[in-house]
Design a protein around this nucleic acid. Sequence first.
RNA 1: GGGGGGAUACUCAAGCGGCCAACGAGGACAGACUGUAAAUCUGUUGGUUUUACCUUCGCAGGUUCGAAUCCUGCUCCCCCCA
Length: 425
Amino acid sequence: MQNNFVEELRWRGMLHDMTPGTEEQLQKELTVGYVGFDPTADSLHIGNLVPVMLLTHFQRCGHKPLVLVGGATGRVGDPSGKTKERQLLDEQTIEKNLKAQQIQLSRFLNFSEGSNKAEIVNNYDWFKELNFLDFIRDVGKHISINYMMAKDSVKNRLETGMSFTEFSYQLIQGYDFFHLLKHKNCKLQMGGSDQWGNITTGTELIRRMGGGNSFALTAPLIKKADGSKFGKSEGGNIWLDPKKTSPYQFYQFWINVSDEDVINFMPIFSLKTRSEIESLIAHHKEAPHLRTLQKALAEEMTIRVHGEHDLEQAIKASNILFGKSGEEELRELNEATLLEVFESVPSYNVNYAALSDGIVELLATHTNILPSKSEARKMLKANAISINKNKVTDGIELTSDNLIHNAYLIVQKGKKNYFLVNVKK
RNA sequence: GGGGGGAUACUCAAGCGGCCAACGAGGACAGACUGUAAAUCUGUUGGUUUUACCUUCGCAGGUUCGAAUCCUGCUCCCCCCA
């Protein structure tokens, strides 16, 4: 093979566990491997990105990745890591989510050419044909309840209770693996370390059903240095869909990754070579305040997910929003540029007459910049509100002099939260 | 079925007739510092017509000048006995 995939994962810090013989198998021949995705939302978020990168590296090492979308399993719900019974999704929602996620995945994997081009499979395609009696007779027969109960995902739920549906999940997932081995010669299943139990049910099932050897490999679940969950920001999830998370916000997420975390994240998400990454890390450690690593990571990710043009916009917006620029620089921008820069910032339309109601009304009534007038007064008192880059106090009067290009107010809450108010005359 | 305990703001958790919009901790937001960091320090954390008023302490009633606090019924949770 071109590259040793396992070795690649090792230095990138993406290897948690694997079954014996996995590395040998991967070195021996072009191997087909898969990762399953849950169609729980109509977009992937960056929490899904680790398994995506697993497949990306897998393909770059010369192997053939399969993306399994859980059209069937999404109808059941994986109990792993869940404390409560999951809400079931209806068919139409799942179909819609699948389509949207497929498009996003194509930015990471090559689906079009080569002997190892990626493929998408949907487990609903084989489960819809399979009836319950056949399943419990042909598949259920091979795995004991004792074996299934020993899994952490089940053990952890014995106290609080779980439905038979969720209990069956590992068998269903296991059968996916068996099916893919039989029809696609897929010998490896990968996933996050929380999937270890489900994956090994698959290899066990395959062994008992006479399918021969199959392999499992998991990546560690990434956590931030402070222990909090990766992939969330104040606003919630960071999505790949630009309608849910604008390219600017996406870029900002990576720029804001902490010094400690970025050292771990870089090798996981970047496709740069080992030596490139190591020299970037060395530079980062010497001069962390320059944030070379964060910038490199943010650029690479934004290009891959959104493209060159969106990256340029994001950088431009970031420079204006966080550079040393003040009101003067804002006013120097022509209207088109101004709108471009603030494109991904929440914006509001307000009538000119509303300005005379005062700043508190503007913040809390005419716009939703702040949830209530009390909140607005508090923020003003705390010196947290800026208009056109200048801090303002409660009594300030707003006139047409404040408007940029005779139409816009740039409002800031704190340092990082920008709002564009479009004032209509 | 019998007995006991509990339900308070985003979370945990005090309060047990007026001084309670409710101690404290965490979280979150903001200010200073800084690198759009981290750590640290400070402030805020129901609403409004903001020195006052209004709505909140599981739900519905009641007692009282006055209740998160007392009484009655209901719902849900935990423990013990059967």
